[in-house]
Amino acid sequence: MDMVRISGMLMRMAGIVFTLLAVTGCDITDPYEIGTLVPATADQNPALPQISIEVGGHTRKIHLETFGVDTLPPLFVLHGGPGADYRHLLPLSELSESYFVIMWDQRGSGLSERIQKDEISFEYWVAELEAVKNHFVPDDKITLVGESWGGMYAMLYYEYHPEDVAQIALLEPGPLANSLSEPYEEEVNDYSLSDDWLNDMVWNMEFLGPYDHEQIDYKWMLVFEQAAGALLCYGYKTTPAWRFGAYLAYTAGHELLDAPQGYDFTANIESLTDPVLILASECSALGYDYQVTYHEPLFPNAQVNLIPESGHFTTVDAPGKVLAELKKFLREYN
């Protein structure tokens, strides 16, 4: 009897069991059903605010919101990850009093449509930002506010399109070149075999497989908060989120950010003579000390300001202080 026949036999047995469960009134959910483990994405839920963009030959629906009047100068908020979403950055919508604020979940992230491996490249990230810009403000310069990976993304975009950028503010950006990642990774990877999140992750192999994206996203949801320990050492406030794009995060990390060829988003940095604001938390592997030591010297004109009483997600721990610092820096407020 081959494996296929065995599998078929098991499925028939299970079918009988679940018919019995259904008859007895038990709730049964098909794990392939959309939105059972993680929220549905823009392509699956038309009620989500969204636009379609074409990048790398694929048209994808991205979850996007705008805040403020579209005649104001545009300000793009770039979330972290790769794979996270902008939910915890929503306090920055307050900047809509002086800016036309645009936030979106990057392709494959959050509530935006999932993407395939051939759509994941630095060039396509640049193309994505270009596509969003062309959709709303094709002729305007844009202000970029990027958090963590979003800070790296802002510098990546500046490398390709410096002429499009009005101002840059970085909220605790990740390493802007892979040569700067070593001290950060040492601290982030300093975890113990007895950590709850690690054991939870392993134990959940008993319950859910890697059948589809929802299952791996759910598993990432399981460890997302706890695994970020070295970035959240000021405390463990819950970070609001919708979905972490696990496949994107893994592929981008494996194929791009951690790949042997490395990366460097500082190629054009010397031309950035306008002031750049870097906000950094009090306690994080990417916090104030890291930013002052590794990032500030790269810029011709950067200033690192401390956000006290905060971990990596400064808009969660200290949104008021972040907004105050941004308003001191951004041109439309001065």
């Binding site: 499925m11 679940f18 709730d27 049964i28 959910t29 098909d30 794990p31 059972t36 483990l37 859910l208």
Partner: peptide
Amino acid sequence: PDASWYIFPN
């Protein structure tokens, strides 16, 4: 989502 049985999860 409510608590529920998920069939054939692994």
